[in-house]
């Protein structure tokens, strides 16, 4: 059937190339993404309304707050789904003792150079992750990227040294709880504005909480919301990695 698939791929590719001629030119001011009424509103008003120079972060965390909230929930649900499919469960870990893959739990081939250099790199990477998270208003970045980089630093640590010993420091249960905490931070901050007479995720109303001018309230609210996203994304990425690398075998709650 290889021929059939090749024909489909070629035909679809030809269609795409044919349709590409109708695309607006790169950075064209008449393209729908630039000329639309909504985009024009964003481009003109975002800095005046939120004091956030990075338009992408402002749209993601403020104007389309619902979108980002449920994206975070999607990440969390994906982690739970992988845990449900692969995991043998933390609670019943001793009863359903699925034999662990030998290669994972036997002594890993420790390499001194890899271990030491990872140990030196990890703090720098984590600091960079926090910078990406906190500076997402002014430069590219934000909760998702910062969370993923933070998770990647922990994954590096677990790859380069003993997975079991590293995993004992943050158990599955704790990572799921951290994921929940992230969503609660996000949704809770949105709910808080209900108590001040606004709508859900209406950060304007939260200015009473900040001894700052009202515009900064929106800017700071975005940071808090992004911190929630980073909590969920980093803990769930770590959970998914451990589930995949250990074939779903539960890493014990306490160090054996």
């Amino acid at each position: 059937m290889k021929v059939f698939q090749t024909i489909i791929a070629v035909v679809l590719g030809a269609l795409l190339i044919y349709a590409e001629a109708d695309f607006p030119a790169w950075a064209s001011s008449k393209s729908p993404a630039n000329a639309g009424e909504l985009s024009q509103y964003y481009i003109k008003n975002i800095y005046d309304e939120t004091l956030v120079p990075n338009m992408v972060t402002a749209v993601l965390a403020d104007y389309r707050g619902y979108d980002t909230l449920f994206e975070t929930v999607v990440v969390f649900t994906a982690g739970l789904a992988i845990f449900a499919i692969l995991g043998t469960g933390v609670m019943r870990e001793k009863k359903t003792a699925v034999p662990a893959p030998k290669r994972i739990y036997s002594e890993p081939p420790f390499d001194l150079i890899v271990r030491i250099s990872t140990r030196m790199l990890v703090p720098v990477i984590q600091l960079f992750a926090l910078y990406v998270l906190a500076h997402g208003h002014h430069s590219p970045g934000g909760g998702f990227q910062g969370g993923v980089i933070l998770a990647a630093s922990f994954i590096m640590l677990e790859l380069s040294s003993d997975l079991r010993a590293e995993a004992a420091k943050l158990t599955h249960r704790m990572s799921i709880w951290l994921g929940i905490i992230g969503i609660v931070i996000y949704a809770g901050w949105g709910t808080l504005s209900l108590f001040f007479g606004g709508h859900f995720l209406d950060y304007d109303m939260l200015q009473a909480l900040f001894p700052l001018d009202p515009l900064m309230a929106r800017s700071h609210s975005m940071l808090i919301v992004e911190v929630g996203v980073a909590f969920t994304v980093s803990s769930i990425m770590l959970l998914i990695f451990r589930q995949l690398v250990s074939g779903g075998y539960s890493i014990p709650d306490k160090q054996a």
């Binding site: 590219p140 990647a152 994954i155 998914i240 995949l244 690398v245 074939g247």
Partner: peptide, 25 residues
């Protein structure tokens, strides 16, 4: 730049690690 950053972190970084971890098993 934002999309590029996300692609570098998620697409090239973490999902490669996930795929390698899956192939490992």
């Amino acid at each position: 730049v934002d999309v590029a950053f996300t692609e570098a972190a998620v697409g090239a970084g973490v999902s490669t690690v996930f795929l390698v971890a899956t192939i490992y098993n």
